[in-house]
Simulated scan of single mutants.
Amino acid sequence: MATTEGLTIRPFEAGDRAAVIALWRACGLVVPHNDPETDIDRAAGRANSDVLVGVTADGRVAASVMVGHDGHRGWLYYVAVAADARGRGHGRAIVAAAEAWLRAREVPKAQLLIRDTNAAVRDFYTGLGWDESPRIVMERRL
């Protein structure tokens, strides 16, 4: 558990579920083919993944990130900060917590995807030192 920028960052707890899902929905991160309940169940508290939450002094979940890795690449998903909590460094803090989680597991590379409908966040990540990686991402729904 870490406290930074007026935010305590810790692993997801069962009682966080509704608040985390509401945050993801409010931030426009939930799409029809990604069920947030299932995504939390697949990631929270696992050996190769977790959901980290940023909690304010009054106990409100104001930030989150789902983080995971395959041993070579780490991934950040559902990076979210409540609209009324932005501009306070919470986004920077939650991303740094995910990066620290990956470093602690000796994962050498972190990646994230930005949906083309959410391109406004590109400048945020660039400001944190992330670089755009020219790749073609292919998928197949199973």
Rank of each mutant, 00 (worst) to 15 (best):
G91K: 10
V61N: 08
K109Q: 15
G129N: 09
R115Y: 15
V65M: 04
G15L: 11
T126D: 04
S133W: 15
L29R: 12
A85G: 04
V31K: 13
V31P: 00
V55K: 01
T3M: 00
A14T: 11
A96S: 06
M1V: 05
A14N: 13
A85H: 12
R140K: 14
G45H: 02
G15V: 13
I114D: 06
E132V: 15
A97F: 01
T4M: 01
E132W: 10
L113I: 11
R10L: 08
V95M: 09
I136W: 03
R88Y: 01
L112S: 05
N118A: 12
L76F: 15
A63E: 06
P134T: 07
V65L: 03
G68W: 09
D58F: 00
A18Y: 01
D50S: 07
K109R: 15
L52D: 00
P134Q: 07
A98M: 09
I40L: 15
Y77E: 06
R25W: 08
G74Y: 13
R42F: 01
V65T: 11
I21R: 13
A26E: 10
G129W: 10
T117A: 11
G54T: 03
R73S: 05
Y125T: 10
L7I: 08
R10Y: 08
V107I: 13
I9D: 00
W101A: 02
M138Q: 14
R60P: 00
G45N: 07
A22P: 09
R103L: 10
Y77C: 02
A26K: 05
V61P: 02
R10V: 08
D35A: 06
A44E: 07
D70E: 14
F124H: 05
D58L: 01
V31S: 12
E106K: 14
D123A: 14
A2C: 01
A22E: 15
E106P: 02
V121P: 14
M1Q: 03
T56D: 04
R122V: 15
V95T: 07
L128K: 12
A62W: 05
T117I: 06
P32D: 11
I136P: 03
G45Q: 05
A63M: 03
T117M: 04
V30L: 09
D84P: 10
H90D: 00
A104F: 07
R86Y: 04
R141W: 04
N34E: 04
V55R: 02
S64Y: 10
D84A: 13
V67W: 09
V30T: 11
S64H: 11
A104P: 03
L128M: 12
A100K: 12
T117W: 08
